[in-house]
Amino acid sequence: MNNPRNTIQFDEGWNFVQKAITKLTNILEGLPEPQFTTQENMMIYETIYNMCTQKPPYDHTARLYEKYQESYVEYILTTVLPSLNEKNGELMLRELVIRWSNHKIMVDCLSKFFHYIDRYYVVRLYLIPCKEVGLLTFRDLVYYKIKGKVRDAVICLINREREGEQIDRVLLKNVLDFFVEIGMGEMDYYEDFEEAMINDAAAYYSQKASIWVLDSSCYDYMLKAHECFRQEKDRVSCYLHPSTETKLLKVRLKRLMVQFYAKFS
């Protein structure tokens, strides 16, 4: 912008910032856009700084804080959610990993542009910091919308692996890391998935055990149970959270041993 030290009307300043946000989302979408230069980054920051430090009624801090969040909302509703909703299963999981990675880049970039708002306005009014606003918006608009589909798709992949199919473990690790990261220090969101996964594992091993007791000797049954134990420990080490190990192995042992004692004791 020309001479950013002059008084900046809100529409004038926001149009400039909006162009930068559009450029950023274009980059994230893989559209042909050059990367931000150091000079561009400085001009965007200075424009926001100047809009926040002008004397009333030209102090636009409050409106900028609102528009900051609205930028995430608009991008998620018009681009991110449609791209996720049109996919299912493994393709949807891959899209989620990409979208979450891009969103973190977007939050990191925009929170730097709006850093001055964090330093004074947010601190003074005890508001949510800009970076947290960006992450919470993804949680509220994306996670809560698709968590059931994501959970079911992950459990489906785990069961396919239990049946001997080779799956993309890196993908699963990235998705389960998303459950941890979206909690921002809390494990509630991962534990929601974990509970569903363990319940499914209980049903899976109950079914397997009821079949094995019909066509296996005591020795063969124990071999199969031991192999399941080894495989579940391997899953935990590869893509599940370490806190899951004890719970998962406990339910597996319980389901397999109930059938074992019913037949062989």
Rank of each mutant, 00 (worst) to 15 (best):
S265Y: 12
L93G: 03
W212P: 01
G148S: 08
I105R: 12
Q35V: 14
G134E: 02
C228L: 08
E191Y: 10
M92K: 06
E194Q: 12
I76F: 04
K224Y: 07
D234H: 14
P56A: 13
E74M: 14
R139Y: 07
S83A: 07
H60P: 01
K233H: 13
F178W: 09
R151T: 15
M184W: 12
V17S: 01
A262R: 10
V236H: 03
E195Q: 15
E12H: 13
T38V: 10
I8Q: 02
Q9L: 13
I8H: 01
S206A: 08
K55N: 11
E95W: 03
Q54D: 04
V122G: 00
G183R: 02
A153H: 02
I21E: 01
F260C: 04
P56Q: 11
M187K: 10
Q35E: 12
I182V: 09
T246H: 14
I98P: 01
I146P: 06
M51Q: 02
K173G: 03
L81E: 11
K247Y: 10
L81D: 07
L127H: 01
K55W: 10
K263F: 00
D168R: 05
E90N: 06
E29P: 02
G185K: 07
C156S: 11
D11F: 09
S206C: 11
F229H: 13
V170R: 13
E12R: 10
I167T: 04
K55Y: 11
A262N: 11
H115R: 14
S237L: 08
D220K: 15
N102H: 09
Y261T: 15
C52P: 01
S217M: 08
W212D: 05
N3G: 05
R5P: 07
P4V: 00
Y221G: 03
I105T: 15
A209T: 05
K104E: 12
A20S: 01
L77Y: 14
S243L: 15
D11S: 08
S217Q: 08
M106W: 07
D220H: 14
V17T: 01
K149V: 07
C156R: 15
Y189P: 02
G183K: 02
Q9R: 11
L157D: 04
R162M: 08
S210P: 04
N41M: 08
K254G: 09
R160V: 03
I98M: 11
H60N: 04
M1G: 10
R255E: 08
T79Y: 07
